[in-house]
Simulated assay, not measured.
Amino acid sequence: MIPVCRLLLCGFAVVLFSLGAQAEIPVTEVKRDALHESLRLDGMIEAVQQSTVSAQTSGTVMRLPFDVDDRVAAGELIVQLEDSEQRARRDQARAGLEDAQASLQDARQRFTRSQSLRKRNLVSQQDFDQARNALTSARAGVSRAGAALAEAREQLEYTRVRAPYSGILIERHVEVGESVSPGQPLLTGLSLKKLRVVVDLPQRYADLVRVQRQARVTLANGRILKTGEMTFYPYASEQAHTFRLRLALPEPGEGLYSGMLVKVDVPVATREALWVPAGAVFHHSELTAVFVLDDDDRPRLRQVRTGIERDGRVEVLAGLDEGERVATAPEALFGSEWLDIAEGEVSQ
């Protein structure tokens, strides 16, 4: 490259290191590699299991053992309704079953006697048929009474509302002393064991992402989340004209909560780019430069124009050619006892 300007860098001269020090300064070659250009979108973490528990029977709220933000285990009691009416119905159904069972026992005995007498022609066919029909009816009565008791027990169990899965309560819809009816919301909760990311894709990139099926999810602190199955909604938003993409998080780990914002990068294009280690580039005021080794293994300061930084590497848009050697620790060149002070050139 042809030098076009000479600059003093804020009062210090560019330094050239001696032959004895060259081997101690790490260098690397400028390499050409693929650059996958990505579209960065805002996504949100949501719980796979999030639901509202509703009342399945009528009653008055007697107990709310847990409050909002409390953790509950699967099967724990979360709402207790007043159950005197349901208990009365259960006891009544139990008595009805006992009565039906007694009627069945009586009908069975009558049928047994009638059957014995019929074999000896001591009763008419009509009397025998009546005994047999009475036995069938008694059996049906026991079945009906048993079903009524099961229903009464189920209604009684509905007064004790239990957590369907382990999780956190996020909303309470009723208070102690409030009367509720079937279908009325009681509590809303979610589980942090299964999480996923949802993001809206612009229509122009939807088909490409469906084919490539690649995405990277990053937290605000730079942590990259491992993603699993990708699900594409088969319809677009009527307002934003975007397609919803859902990414499973098989190993969410600690520190993730429903409602958190994340960055989702999806590749949309690929091109060739020149790369150098991020540590090889240094900045001073408005200057961005690297040290390039010339044919005599002497470092020359050269101004460069850089692009994106990714995975510890920086894209070089101008100022370097493939195969050139650059110092990977430019700070070590300044103030080193192995360096000879000389005026240098900044070329572009």
Results as ranks from 00 to 15, higher is better:
Ala74Ser: 11
Gln303Leu: 11
Ala332Glu: 14
Val176Phe: 05
Leu192Ala: 06
Leu135His: 10
Arg32Phe: 00
Tyr233Lys: 13
Leu19Arg: 14
Gln86Ile: 09
Leu187Tyr: 03
Ile341Gly: 00
Tyr205Gln: 12
Pro202Asn: 08
Arg213Thr: 06
His283Thr: 12
Val14Arg: 01
Ser124Gln: 09
Ala138Tyr: 09
Gln56Lys: 11
Glu331Gln: 15
Val209Ile: 15
Ile308Met: 11
Glu315Ile: 08
Leu274Asn: 06
Asp207Arg: 15
Arg204Gln: 14
Asp83Ile: 11
His241Gly: 04
Thr242Ala: 03
Val346Tyr: 08
Leu8Glu: 12
Ala332Asn: 11
Glu82Gly: 13
Phe111Ala: 10
Ala34Glu: 11
Leu247Pro: 03
Ala74Pro: 00
Met62Ser: 14
Ser179Lys: 10
Glu157Ser: 14
Asp69Cys: 01
Arg40Gly: 01
Leu261Ser: 15
Gln239Asn: 08
Val180Asp: 07
Leu149Ala: 11
Asn133Ile: 05
Val264Arg: 08
Leu320Tyr: 09
Arg6Thr: 03
Gln56Pro: 00
Ser54Ala: 12
Ala138Arg: 08
Arg302Asn: 02
Arg162Gly: 01
Ser51Asn: 03
His284Arg: 13
Arg87Leu: 15
Leu77Ile: 14
Phe128Gly: 02
Ala107Ser: 11
Val262Asp: 10
Arg210Lys: 14
Val79His: 11
His36Ser: 11
Val14Glu: 07
Glu98Lys: 10
Pro234Lys: 08
Val27Gly: 02
Glu345Tyr: 01
Thr242Met: 04
Gln105Tyr: 07
Asp99Arg: 07
Tyr165Trp: 14
Leu317Met: 11
Glu178Gly: 01
Val292Cys: 01
Gly141Ile: 05
Asp311Thr: 12
Leu261Ala: 14
Glu272Tyr: 02
Phe291Arg: 13
Gln184Ser: 07
Glu331Tyr: 12
Leu186Cys: 10
Phe17Glu: 12
His284Pro: 00
Gly335Ala: 05
Ala93Lys: 05
Ser103Pro: 00
Arg89His: 13
Gln155Asp: 12
Phe232Ala: 06
Val123Cys: 06
Met62Phe: 05
His283Ile: 08
Trp275Val: 03
Gly43Gln: 06
Ser336His: 15
Arg271Pro: 01
Gln184Ala: 09
Leu7Phe: 04
Leu333Trp: 08
Arg118His: 14
Arg110Val: 04
Ala147Met: 10
Lys226Ala: 11
Val72Met: 02
Gly11Gln: 10
Gln109Ala: 14
Ala329Phe: 02
Arg300Val: 14
Ala55Val: 03
Phe12Met: 04
Pro299Trp: 04
Leu187Ala: 04
Asp127Asn: 12
Val123Trp: 05
Val53His: 01
Ala34Ser: 09
Leu187Glu: 04
Ala327Arg: 07
Thr288Trp: 01
Glu345His: 03
Ser137Gln: 13
Ala102Leu: 13
Leu261Val: 10
